[in-house]
C-alpha cells in the first residue's frame, strides 16, 4: 500500500510542477441562469453566451438554477468567487422586483454585484382573449373600468414577469380585476385562448405566436417603438395609455469584486456579441430589444438596476404581493 501511495504522489507531483501563471479565461465560464431552460431569459443567455464564448476563447456554459422567482440562482451566483468564472443573467424580476417580493432576500440588487451590461429586453404586450368586446386599447380600458371586478386577469405566478407587469398595469389603469394564478405562461395562455380568463400582460416572445396565429388579440406593446416581430400592434403611447412602458430586461452581472481586467474582458465580449449581425438577428427574431450606444455597458446597467428597484418596490408593496 505504501508503494501505491508513493507512486500516486509521484504522478501528481509531476503534474503539479507544470502549472504556471495564467491569464483569464483559462477554463470554461459558468453563466448561471436563474430560470428553467427554454424560457426567454434562458434563450437570450444561450444566444449571447454562444457569441461571448468566441470572443473569450473559452466556452460559456449555461447552468440553470431555477427557483423562488429566480432568486435562488442569483443568491448562489452572488456568493460565488469573483474570479470571472461565475457570472449570471439577472433580469427584471431578480434585480428589480425581488426586493419588494422577497423580504428575506439575501442580496441587494444594486450593491451585491459588479454589472457587466444589458443583454436584451423583451417588451411586454397587453393581450386579451380573442373575442374580447373592445376594438382598441381605449375601448379595452373603458370596458375594464366598467367591468372591474368581473374581469379575470391571468398571470404566471407571484413573482413572475407577467405578475409584476400585470400589477403595474392594474395600478396605472386604476382597476382591481380578479387575479388568476397559473404555473408558468403556457397554461395561462391556454386558458386565455379558450376564454376562461380575460386578459394578461406578458413578454412578447411568449405571446407573439398566438397573436400572429389569431388565437388571442394584442392591444398594445409597452415600448416606445413598435416591434418588428409584431408590426401591427401599436405602442401604449400611440394607443393612448401613458405611464405604462415596461420590458423584461435581461442583463449580465458578476459577483461583487471582479478584477478590473476580467470585468473589462467580459464587458467587451458582451459588447461584441450584441454587435454581431447573426446574434442580433436571432435576438430580434425573438422580439427582443437590443441596447444601443449609451444603453450598453456596466454604468448604464447600474443606473437601470437602481431605477428599477425604485420603480417596482412601491407598486408591488401597495398591491400587497409578498412572496415571503
Amino acid at each position: 500500500m505504501k508503494k501505491l501511495i508513493s507512486i500516486a504522489a509521484a504522478a501528481l507531483g509531476l503534474v503539479a510542477g507544470a502549472a504556471s501563471a495564467q491569464t483569464y479565461p483559462q477554463r470554461p465560464i459558468t453563466m448561471i441562469v436563474p430560470f428553467a431552460a427554454g424560457g426567454p431569459t434562458d434563450v437570450i443567455a444561450r444566444i449571447v453566451g454562444d457569441h461571448m464564448s468566441r470572443t473569450l476563447g473559452q466556452q460559456v456554459v449555461i447552468e440553470n438554477v431555477a427557483g423562488a422567482g429566480g432568486t435562488t440562482g442569483i443568491t448562489r451566483a452572488a456568493g460565488a468567487a469573483p474570479d470571472g468564472y461565475t457570472i449570471m443573467m439577472g433580469h427584471m424580476g431578480t434585480h428589480g422586483a425581488a426586493p419588494a417580493l422577497y423580504p428575506n432576500l439575501k442580496y441587494d440588487p444594486a450593491n451585491s454585484f459588479d454589472t457587466i451590461g444589458m443583454a436584451a429586453g423583451t417588451p411586454i404586450v397587453i393581450v386579451a382573449k380573442k373575442d374580447y368586446p373592445a376594438g382598441d386599447l381605449k375601448a379595452f380600458l373603458a370596458h375594464l373600468k366598467a367591468n372591474d371586478t368581473k374581469t379575470n386577469m391571468a398571470h404566471a405566478g407571484v413573482g413572475s414577469v407577467s405578475h409584476s407587469t400585470g400589477v403595474l398595469f392594474t395600478s396605472v389603469v386604476g382597476i382591481k380585476p380578479t387575479m388568476v394564478a397559473y404555473r408558468g405562461t403556457g397554461p395561462a395562455l391556454n386558458d386565455l385562448m379558450s376564454g376562461q380568463v380575460d386578459f394578461m400582460t406578458d413578454q412578447i416572445v411568449n405571446v407573439a405566436p398566438q397573436i400572429t396565429g389569431g388565437t388571442i388579440r394584442a392591444y398594445a406593446i409597452a415600448t416606445p417603438q413598435r416591434s418588428p416581430a409584431l408590426p401591427d400592434v401599436p405602442t401604449t403611447k400611440e394607443a393612448g395609455l401613458e405611464g405604462y412602458e415596461v420590458s423584461a430586461w435581461n442583463a449580465v452581472f458578476g459577483p461583487k469584486g471582479l478584477p478590473a481586467d476580467v470585468r473589462a474582458k467580459l464587458v467587451d465580449a458582451l459588447n461584441k456579441a450584441l454587435s454581431d449581425e447573426n446574434t442580433r438577428k436571432r435576438l430580434l427574431d425573438l422580439g427582443g430589444v437590443i441596447p444601443e450606444g449609451a444603453e450598453r455597458g456596466p454604468e448604464a446597467l447600474q443606473k437601470l438596476v437602481e431605477s428599477e428597484v425604485a420603480r417596482w418596490t412601491p407598486v408591488l408593496k401597495a398591491a400587497g404581493a409578498v412572496a415571503n
Partner: peptide, 17 residues
C-alpha cells in the same frame, strides 16, 4: 417548454403557424 426554447433559438416560432 424546453422544446419551445429550442425552436425559438433556431428562429422558429412554435404555434399554429
Amino acid at each position: 417548454a424546453l422544446m419551445v426554447g429550442a425552436m425559438t433559438i433556431h428562429g422558429i416560432v412554435p404555434g399554429p403557424q
